[in-house]
Amino acid sequence: MSRTLALLAGLLFGTGLILGGMTQPAVVLGFLDPFGAWNPRLLFVMAGAVATTAIGYRLVWRRKAPWLGSSFHLPTARSADGRLVLGAALFGAGWGIAGYCPGPALASVGGGDPSVLVLVGAMALGSWLASRLPARQA
């Protein structure tokens, strides 16, 4: 049951990315180019997603626990640190180079373009390398 619902959530997520144009790197790069031919589509995607999630989360959290689990798994880290900022900056640089963040990158693997597989393979390597870093390093 949990896998079925997770599959549905993944389908819904991917469909949202497609509707929003986020699976087209040209659209994403256009959003990140406010000094060129700016494409504001991503702003509408973010607004729709954040508003829906903000309202939905609050309704969901009225319950003590999720339907299929004992507790909600929420991030516990509170303070911003060097890792957060450096990580976000490196991610932003990669996003600006190719126009793919992790969701659209993974959603694109079935499209048959070999360079997308290169991207996703490199992404996996990068994530694995970062997970090997010692736990405390700012």
């Binding site: 880290a77 490196l90 640089a93 990669g94 190719a98 963040c101 390398l129």
Partner: peptide, 13 residues
């Protein structure tokens, strides 16, 4: 780009 995105998102949580 993939290396940066993978490394950065893991590091930045």
């Amino acid at each position: 780009a993939g290396l940066l995105v993978g490394f950065g998102t893991r590091l930045g949580g």
